[in-house]
Amino acid sequence: MTNESLENVTLELRRGVIVLAVLINLGEEQYGYSLIKGLKNHGLEIDQGTLYPLLRRLESQGLLHSNWRIEADRPRRYYVLSNEGKTLLPRLKQEWTGIVSIMDKML
């Protein structure tokens, strides 16, 4: 497998994981950049160009809420799970556990 193919497959793998990671980390309000840093601290690095459009998409799907707030004289956009997102998250976690268990057996 070439490096490029490996990169593409890895990207595909990460794409689904990122949605779950973002939803898990937005149980409490966070602005975009703090979310990126938080995920990085957990060992999951996300490109800015991936995260912000994803946040908007999740918001348009009704899974997140966002609001602008002025902090230290400048505006920041804060994201948090919506009620729908809160309902969905446990089921997504369960789904993830199932996938991990199946893959563990395969690996």
């Binding site: 602005y31 975009g32 950049y33 703090s34 800015q48 912000y52 908007r56 602008w68 400048r74 505006p75 920041r76 956009r77």
Partner: peptide, 16 residues
């Protein structure tokens, strides 16, 4: 809206 958000992110990055 997107412009405002990007501006805010860039300022966060610069601050760090």
């Amino acid at each position: 809206d997107i412009e405002a958000e990007i501006r805010s992110i860039l300022q966060d990055m610069l601050e760090e």
